[in-house]
Structures are given as C-alpha cells and as structure tokens.
C-alpha cells in the first residue's frame, strides 16, 4: 500500500537522474518520453513502494519533483482522503 506519491513538473526536468538514483525504495525511473526540451523526465514504476519521504524533492536541482504523504496512512483522515485527487490525476495535472 502506497504511503505517498510524487508529483513531477515534467517541463522543468533536465533528466539528471538524481531522483531515480537516490530514491530509497527505487520507485522512479526515467521515462522514454521526452519533454519539450528533449529530456526524459522520471515517472513512477513502482508506485506502491512510495513512502512519500520527499527525498526526490530534496535532490532535484530543478525543483521539478516532490514527494508527499497520502492521507491513507492516517486512519482518522480516511473521510478526507476521498476529497483528495488520486495521485495519478495529480501527476497529470502537473504535466503540461
């Protein structure tokens, strides 16, 4: 069960691979898709493993990715979680 997720602003990414290399649970990989500048932005290959630690966000030199905890881990917040957008939708929203 994923405890967190990441959001990527693909157009800021320069494909350095820091987030992919230093993700503690190896959630990310560089995608085969290009952004407008020709770099390969990261995407989640194992979203279930994401703990939302935001280490990818700390490493990203271009402020293009960040991790966040999803509310499912907090039992009291289950009703609120229904209002939150699903991580996949959120990612799409950030991808221009």
């Amino acid at each position: 069960m994923a405890r967190g997720s990441v959001a990527v602003t693909t157009e800021r990414c320069k494909g350095c691979g820091f987030c992919v290399e230093f993700c503690p649970t190896h959630v990310l990989a560089l995608s085969s898709a290009f952004n407008r500048k020709g770099y390969h932005p990261p995407h989640m290959i194992e979203p279930d493993k994401c703990s939302g630690c935001n280490l990818c966000g700390m490493y990203c030199p271009d402020f293009a990715i960040f991790g966040f905890k999803t509310a499912e881990t907090k039992p009291a917040a289950i009703p609120a979680a229904t209002e939150a957008p699903a991580p996949s939708e959120a990612m799409e929203a950030k991808e221009v």
Partner: peptide
C-alpha cells in the same frame, strides 16, 4: 503531511 489539494512543491 502536505495538503493533497495544494499540489505545489513546498
């Protein structure tokens, strides 16, 4: 915990 509705990089 970051508010899921405010999806901006902190």
């Amino acid at each position: 915990l970051i508010e899921p509705t405010a999806l901006t990089n902190p």
